[in-house]
Design a protein around this nucleic acid. Sequence first.
DNA 1: TTGCAGATGCAATATAGTTGCAGAACAGGG
DNA 2: CCCTGTTCTGCAACTATATTGCATCTGCAA
Lengths: 143, 143
Amino acid sequence: MDRSAEALRKLGYPATRGRGEILRILAESPLPLSPKEILSRFPAPKPDASTVYRNLSLLVSLGLVRSVALHERSRRYEVAGDGAHRHRVVCKGCGRIESFQPRRCDLSRLETDLRSALGFDVTEHSLEFFGACPDCLRTEERR
Amino acid sequence: MDRSAEALRKLGYPATRGRGEILRILAESPLPLSPKEILSRFPAPKPDASTVYRNLSLLVSLGLVRSVALHERSRRYEVAGDGAHRHRVVCKGCGRIESFQPRRCDLSRLETDLRSALGFDVTEHSLEFFGACPDCLRTEERR
DNA sequence: TTGCAGATGCAATATAGTTGCAGAACAGGG
DNA sequence: CCCTGTTCTGCAACTATATTGCATCTGCAA
């Protein structure tokens, strides 16, 4: 928790165990995680759920973590710092999630349009695809 | 509630008052609405919240209504039947939401790539932009 | 090592959504 | 027009998710 501890301290926030673990857990996961999943991966002693929520919102507001909306009951989170921009595909059958990095994400043109048309200064976007994963496709065909 | 009543009955579901009103309320709104907002726009006698939830999931599963995820606590809903595909811009300052119809939404190429790369059969996508609306931009500048 | 701002645990509370059940509304058949 | 089975609705209980107040503890800078 070296780099992240540094980042936190530079921003004026103590690098507590909870924060370090959250960042580590998220960094190790290929998929965005829900608060509950994060908590379940905590080594003992597990912190209180409220601590996880509080730290997640702090990390999001500091820009170290990003939240992802996947039409689910709870939000999911992923590390934001690694510069990688990712999109998701979610299977509507089984809920399986895949991340991928677009070859080149050409929505910048659209963002410029938004600036001129609506006066909005767009800083982020999120793009999710929904459909059927290979396994569920096969099951459907069998029917 | 003529067309929608027809659509419902054709699918084998009675066109009850609740369903008709939900479709009307959603059709009249330029923005996707949360279940609570839908309920608040119901003329008296207001139905129970559970009825609204139940009808929303029915309408979604019938494809007459679509749900939109905007990084909020609750989902939002909009009519799906009008064939218009829309994206959103959300202001991170004040929460204001704007919808727009993309000139042409060219993500089909990306969807084809997903099919060949991951074997996913993509049927929908959702694209949201986040940033600062004109009003909030002005306020920020003043600081 | 000590002091203090800020973090944590715990419990209470809030918000969103779901479910079981009994009674009301409704559609179709006689 | 009425009976009958089906579906819908309201109500209340319940689950899951998230937030907050407060007393206590901890990280860290001097």
